[in-house]
Design a protein around this nucleic acid. Structure first.
Lengths: 110, 110
DNA sequence: TCGATGGATCGATATATGTCAATATGGGGG
DNA sequence: CCCCCATATTGACATATATCGATCCATCGA
């Protein structure tokens, strides 16, 4: 999958780029998914399997799987299969990209 | 209005803080609203009235007003009335906060 | 080979969201 | 005082999303 990083603040962002960037931000714009990212980052080794998330989130397995899919499709987490488990991990580079996109030029508000 | 900045990466984020942070990210997680932020930042003086946004966005006045409201309630823009117009402006401090919240500790992924 | 377990997908459902037309509000200008 | 213009709100509607139970798929252990 390809992820772009069209900046919001260098000229007016194009409709198409806005859709792509908005997808990543919308993926983070949900309390459950924010907590998933937080749980993964705090997990020993920085990764956890899906089954370890159900209990702290208080959600069913399909629901957790649904949110992980959205995070995966937004490039925010990756999952690596190890036997029966899929170990999920935060893609910190992707977070870097998103923060970069939201960085205003110094002149904003002047 | 009060805006919190509970970090996602210092321990596991609490449900309540996640809701608040997610609201800000969800406000940015829409192509139209991203473009509004971009349009405001690119506008001369860093501000524009609502009526100036309708045409570049290709949306009706109520729809633009709706999106501006969401951005306002998320603390991402402010509006100051000048006569008949309301001049909207990006709150770059709020963007800074959001970027801060998304900053992973150096240890993520270790 | 079979049963158990983790994960993905499907179908259904309730809720949230984006959009617009119509209407209300509020400030100038004549 | 009345009319215009920018903005906000309301109501309606179509679409998207979050959630779950049921089911399917894949892998491991016995």
């Amino acid at each position: 999958m390809e992820f772009c990083c069209a900046p919001v603040f260098e000229g007016v962002i194009e409709e198409e780029d806005a859709v792509e960037t908005a997808r990543a931000l919308a993926a983070l714009g949900d309390p459950v998914r924010l907590r998933i990212v937080s749980l993964l980052a705090a997990a020993p080794g920085g990764s956890a399997c899906g089954c370890e998330l159900e209990s702290p989130l208080g959600l069913s397995q399909p629901t957790v799987s649904h949110h992980l899919r959205i995070l995966r499709e937004a490039g925010l987490v990756t999952g690596h299969r190890e036997g029966r488990w899929v170990h999920y991990r935060v893609v910190s580079q992707r977070l870097d990209e998103i923060r970069e996109v939201l960085t205003p030029p110094l002149a904003v508000g002047v």
